[in-house]
Design a protein around this nucleic acid. Structure first.
Length: 609
RNA sequence: CGGGAUGUGGCCCAGCGGCUAGGGCACCUGGUUUGGGACCAGGGGAUCGCAGGUUCGAAUCCUGCCAUCCCGACCA
């Protein structure tokens, strides 16, 4: 039914439009008609995925961290999304779509409206109401759960969507790896008890591995920071690559963690008798290295102070306060751990004036005698030892300082940063440091959101309880880029069959287009996804270069020479096969090859894990 | 938010006080070529990021702003 002016036109022979051949002609792609174009090398130093996706005409940048996906990319994206859908549906997920623009109210209820800084974009609608752009959907999913779930009999439930998110990231980079606007698969689970949540979490854990495997991407899981999500437990799915921006540790014993939360074994020393606090002159010893050299002591006998300004939230008010982090001299502090320990909204290094403002002296600082500051100490500082600490006086330190007696931190916990050479706390071996891209994550949220939104249900005992939730994300564009990072050579992309925009790249080099056209239609009729390079004005070299760039796994070349013997050339993009095929039975051969590749890919990626 | 760099036809870059802003790629026309990014001839296409200022004269120098990229901070 088409509307022209005010008249409806009904097609009499609608069935014709749905016939197999016609449908095929509609879904085709001929290179001569492709919307995008390929670009020459730029010579810019870019990550492989960014360079090839742009050059091959998959994506175009609109602004920093904001991209359009062109037709060929969209085909890959659709395949990735469908793999995600299949695996989500398999664990009982139900697909929904939630809005991208939210009234700020719910975000105020959970306090994230105030807690999250500039990354959350806030604006007003025409009535002046506070609105936000969705950076994630916990608030809205919880609101939906609140409205739909009233009884334990309805639980457990998992809903998911594949939706646009906006995060005003301070530093977008590396093409699609780190962007501001992106598509994300996010699921939210609702459970009546913790056992149900554990099961949902585990199901997601396995489903994620399946999805990444099917997309041809090897990943590992690491224990991760809870960050702005809050909650109880979290894992990140990491694709290991040197261009990754996340730093993580692994160990042969199986321990893995994002280095933000990585724990390691700290050396504990023999106890010492209590001595008096004594001030000593230590000129020009602003660093631990200078200090221990000057005094001829080990750096483990010192305690350093690192100063930050923490932003804290109290109700709707926020305030800043100096934070003094104390840690044994040989160790480094980890800002994420500090921020989590003291429950600060934000943390930044303090300026000298701010340090002096509470009576501390940078280079000779400690928490001893300081009132107006939040003090957090690392658990490497032993109660039964004497330490050399700053005297808050230029060129002076204190000896014999004891934890508990001389300084009494507000928090004592692990705030140490795992660095190269750190020892695994599980098995005692050296931790291995790597870099990776976070392609997915899973969180046990617990009742954080259900409590603030009021998503409650009646349990079997008749009592009203908050729903126990989980949240699980996968960055679709980042996944696409990671796949390219993993599968490319110097000439372009080498798609895994499962996510390749097309299965077969049919290249015609013959002036007589008849044979190629014939093949093309027969491929379409057999359901083979084919990209047809039917361009007559391009030379062979251009077509080959473009084909390499596109990275479609199978290639059929129609040329005059092989046609003489009723043959065409067959080549795989990975370079393993380069041969000729009889025209007879070629579609059957290709279909079998495609199926085989889909099967083998999953096996080979699984083998890497 | 700190540090650095760059903005010149669609893309990559040259020009860095002197008059009509230049090349390569891409595009259009014609011809020759035709298996790994062809060649010849002709042609179209630019508010030189924006706004001020200095100057007889500004793409070029100065100031401010904006944008993009890289490093760091930040980030599910």
């Amino acid at each position: 039914m088409i509307l022209y002016g005010s008249h409806y036109i009904y097609y009499q022979n609608l069935w014709k439009w749905c016939s197999k051949k016609t449908r095929g002609v509609i879904t085709i792609m001929r290179m001569s008609q492709l919307f995008s174009r390929t670009l020459r090398p730029t010579g810019k130093d870019e990550t492989a995925s960014a360079e090839f996706l742009v050059r091959a005409g998959f994506i175009r940048q609109l602004a920093a961290g904001i991209y359009s996906y062109l037709p060929i990319a969209q085909r890959s994206i659709n395949k990735i999304e469908n793999i995600i859908r299949e695996e989500m549906d398999r664990i009982g997920g139900q697909e929904i779509t939630m809005p991208v623009v939210h009234p700020a109210d719910t975000w105020k209820e959970t306090n994230r409206y105030f807690e999250i800084d500039k990354e959350l974009t806030k604006f007003n609608d025409r009535w002046g109401r506070d609105m936000v752009l969705a950076m994630t959907h916990e608030e809205i999913a919880t609101t939906l759960i609140k409205s739909e779930i009233i009884s334990y009999k309805q639980l457990p439930q998992t809903i998911y969507q594949i939706q646009t998110k906006w995060r005003d990231d301070a530093r977008p980079r590396a093409g699609l790896i780190r962007v501001r606007e992106f598509t994300m698969k996010d699921s939210y689970s609702a459970a009546a008890n913790w056992e149900q949540l554990d099961k949902q979490y585990e199901e997601h854990f396995h489903a994620y591995f399946k999805m990444f495997n099917r997309c041809g991407l090897p990943v590992i899981t690491v224990q991760s920071d809870l960050g702005m999500m809050g909650g109880k437990m979290a894992h990140e799915f990491m694709y290991l690559t040197s261009m990754g921006e996340d730093s993580l540790v692994t160990c042969d014993c199986g321990y893995t963690a994002n280095s933000e939360v990585a724990v390691f074994k700290k050396e504990f020393l023999a106890s010492q008798d209590e001595v008096e606090l004594k001030e000593i002159e230590t000129p020009g010893t602003e660093s631990i290295e200078d200090l221990s050299k000057f005094l001829g002591v080990n750096s483990t006998d010192t305690v350093k102070a690192v100063f930050y300004i923490g932003t804290f939230q109290k109700g709707e008010d926020e305030f800043e306060k100096l934070v003094i982090a104390q840690i044994r001299g040989d160790l480094q502090v980890n800002e994420t751990k500090i921020q989590n320990a003291i429950k600060a909204k934000a943390l930044r290094p303090a300026a000298v004036e701010e340090i002096e403002g509470v009576g501390c002296v940078a280079g000779y600082g400690s928490a001893i005698g300081i009132k107006n500051a939040v003090v957090v100490a690392d658990d490497s500082i032993q109660k039964n030892r004497n330490y050399i600490v700053g005297a808050n006086k230029v060129n002076y330190h204190l000896t014999g300082a004891r934890l508990g007696r001389d300084f009494t931190p507000d928090f004592i916990t692990d705030i140490a940063n795992a660095v190269e050479g750190a020892i695994c706390s599980c098995c005692g071996k050296q931790l291995i440091f790597s870099r990776g891209v976070e392609v997915g994550n899973i969180f046990k949220l617990g009742t954080k959101y259900s409590e603030s939104v009021g998503a409650v249900f009646n349990d079997i005992d008749g009592k009203e309880k908050p729903v126990i939730m989980g949240s699980y994300g996968i960055g679709v564009g980042r996944l696409l880029a990671s796949i390219v990072e993993e599968h490319h050579d110097e000439n372009g992309i080498i798609w895994p069959m499962s996510v390749s925009p097309y299965q077969v790249h049919l290249i015609n080099l013959s002036k007589n287009t008849e044979k190629a056209e014939e093949l093309y239609t027969s491929f379409i009729d057999e359901g083979i996804e084919v990209l047809f390079d039917d361009r007559t004005k391009e030379r062979a070299g251009v077509k080959f270069k473009d084909a390499d760039l596109f990275g479609i796994p199978l290639r059929i070349i129609v040329g005059d020479k092989s046609l003489e013997t009723e043959e065409v050339e067959f080549k795989t993009r990975c370079g393993k096969i380069n041969t000729t095929l009889k025209l007879e039975g070629i579609t059957k051969f290709l279909k079998e090859k495609i199926d085989l590749m889909l099967h083998e890919e999953v096996l080979s990626v699984t083998g890497k894990l």
